[in-house]
């Protein structure tokens, strides 16, 4: 039974966007602070620090999680995805990110990292969502710029584009060997 003492820093190692990372943290250190301050992964934003605003939402072992309601020591050995892991290449946006850009689904961008993580996970599980489902998901995030309408539009358009891609991929005939 590992007991990590309050006054020492302990090694925390996990997979971040597919790459192994590690650092040291006091037991009380939040995952949001560990990502930003220890690992320098500042794409994840910190808003309210009590689980309400959703800005710090990341994916832990495939589950959406408020990183401000998660301790760094709790995710030792886990697989974590953050907004830095969404783009397929440094010069290319993901389908969802590109839709956000087209629809002006962000203004100041503070809430965007969390919303992208939620929508990315949600669209994988629900490839053909309706507007009510998207709005239900977005109820877990606060955005004070957009009024949400462009975010909903971007999400629905990204969903349509992603499922069209999936269909195309299915229909493609394998090349001759």
């Amino acid at each position: 039974m590992p007991r990590l003492s309050a006054d020492q820093r302990h090694t925390v190692a996990f997979t971040l966007n597919g790459l192994p990372v590690d650092g040291v943290a006091e037991p009380r250190m939040l995952l949001s602070d560990f990502l930003r301050q220890t690992l320098g992964a500042t794409g994840t934003h910190v808003g309210c620090e009590h689980g309400v605003c959703g800005a710090c939402t990341v994916e832990v072992d495939g589950m959406l999680a408020r990183s401000c309601l998660t301790l760094a020591v709790q995710v030792d050995g886990a697989s974590i995805r953050t907004v830095e892991g969404l783009a397929p290449a440094p010069d290319r946006l993901s389908v969802l990110q590109a839709a956000f850009r087209r629809h002006h689904a962000l203004q100041c961008g503070f809430c965007t990292a969390g919303i992208l993580m939620s929508l990315d996970a949600f669209l994988k599980a629900n490839p053909e969502p309706d507007e009510a489902q998207v709005r239900d998901l977005l109820s877990g995030h606060l955005c004070r710029c957009t009024g949400y309408t462009p975010i909903v539009r971007a999400a629905l358009e990204a969903a349509a584009e992603l499922s069209a891609q999936d269909t195309a991929a299915c229909q493609e005939e394998p090349a001759h060997a």
Binding site: P2, L4, A6, P27, D33, V73
Partner: peptide, 11 residues
């Protein structure tokens, strides 16, 4: 808003 220090036991 950060927690006060505590020991952490992973049972």
């Amino acid at each position: 808003m950060k927690p006060a220090p505590f020991d952490f036991v992973r049972a």
